[in-house]
Simulated scan of single mutants.
Amino acid sequence: MKPRAPKTGYVDGAWWPYTADLVDELPGLITALADRLGPVLWVAYYLIDWDTPTRALVVDGQSVRLDWHGYTPAHTVELIDARNRRLVVLVVPPEADPRDACAAMTAAAAANGTPTVNELLGQGLRRRRARAGRKIAARRWADRTTSAN
C-alpha cells in the first residue's frame, strides 16, 4: 500500500491473490486493510476477473456487500468503509509471473506514483523484454566480434 498521504494516481496499492475465487481471497485482504480503512461495508469488483461472483460475504462478523460495476476498471477492487472512505487496490492476476507481480506491486505502492492500471500490470513484462533485448544485442555483438577474428 502507498503511505498515508494525499492520494496520487488511481490505485492506493496492490494485491496478488492466490486464486480467482473472490469468496476465498477477499476476507484476507479486508482483514489486512482493517487498520487502515476500518470495517469494510462494500466492495466493488470487475466481474470478469473472478470465478465466483457473489453478492455478500461475512468477514470477522461484519457483513460486506459485494457488487460488480461497469465503471470499476478491470484488475481492481474498490473497498469502501462506513464513512464512505475508499481504497482502490490493483489486483495482480493470480497466474502472473512472480517477477511481473513484484514489479507491478512495487510500482503501485510508490508514494507519488501515478501510472494507470494497464501501465502497472505491464511494468514487469516491459522490464523483462528490455533485459531480453539487451541480452540478444550483446550476443549479436559478441558473435560479430568473435567471427571477425
Rank of each mutant, 00 (worst) to 15 (best):
residue 118 N to F: 05
residue 102 C to N: 12
residue 135 K to Y: 10
residue 77 V to M: 07
residue 131 R to L: 13
residue 71 Y to V: 04
residue 128 R to L: 11
residue 42 W to K: 12
residue 99 R to M: 11
residue 115 P to A: 04
residue 83 R to E: 10
residue 52 T to G: 08
residue 138 A to G: 05
residue 95 E to C: 04
residue 79 L to Y: 04
residue 82 A to S: 13
residue 97 D to L: 09
residue 98 P to Q: 08
residue 104 A to G: 03
residue 101 A to R: 13
residue 80 I to S: 01
residue 86 R to G: 11
residue 78 E to L: 13
residue 126 R to G: 03
residue 130 A to G: 00
residue 82 A to F: 10
residue 58 V to L: 02
residue 89 V to M: 14
residue 108 A to M: 01
residue 112 N to D: 15
residue 139 R to C: 05
residue 93 P to M: 08
residue 56 A to N: 15
residue 44 A to W: 13
residue 88 V to R: 05
residue 67 D to Q: 13
residue 69 H to V: 00
residue 86 R to D: 10
residue 66 L to K: 13
residue 78 E to V: 15
residue 90 L to H: 02
residue 143 D to Y: 15
residue 46 Y to K: 08
residue 58 V to H: 05
residue 134 R to A: 14
residue 142 A to C: 02
residue 119 E to H: 02
residue 91 V to P: 01
residue 100 D to S: 14
residue 106 T to F: 11
residue 134 R to T: 11
residue 119 E to G: 10
residue 78 E to A: 02
residue 79 L to V: 09
residue 75 H to I: 00
residue 79 L to I: 09
residue 87 L to P: 00
residue 131 R to N: 07
residue 136 I to L: 10
residue 98 P to C: 07
residue 98 P to T: 09
residue 43 V to Q: 05
residue 134 R to I: 06
residue 121 L to D: 03
residue 86 R to I: 04
residue 88 V to C: 04
residue 52 T to P: 00
residue 119 E to A: 11
residue 110 A to R: 09
residue 98 P to V: 09
residue 123 Q to S: 13
residue 65 R to F: 06
residue 128 R to D: 05
residue 54 T to M: 02
residue 116 T to F: 01
residue 107 A to V: 01
residue 106 T to P: 00
residue 46 Y to P: 04
residue 62 Q to E: 14
residue 55 R to N: 02
residue 142 A to M: 06
residue 120 L to E: 04
residue 127 R to I: 03
residue 114 T to F: 01
residue 139 R to E: 03
residue 44 A to R: 12
residue 44 A to H: 14
residue 114 T to K: 01
residue 115 P to Q: 02
residue 95 E to Q: 12
residue 120 L to A: 08
residue 137 A to S: 09
residue 51 D to R: 15
residue 94 P to L: 09
residue 117 V to W: 01
residue 90 L to D: 00
residue 85 R to H: 13
residue 139 R to I: 12
residue 72 T to L: 05
residue 105 M to G: 15
residue 49 D to F: 01
residue 94 P to W: 08
residue 130 A to P: 01
residue 109 A to V: 06
residue 73 P to G: 00
residue 82 A to I: 07
residue 135 K to W: 11
residue 105 M to Q: 14
residue 103 A to C: 05
residue 99 R to P: 01
residue 130 A to K: 04
residue 137 A to L: 08
residue 82 A to L: 07
residue 55 R to F: 00
residue 55 R to T: 10
residue 122 G to K: 00
residue 52 T to S: 15
residue 50 W to F: 13
residue 43 V to R: 09
residue 92 V to F: 03
residue 43 V to E: 05
residue 108 A to W: 01
residue 128 R to Q: 08
residue 44 A to I: 03
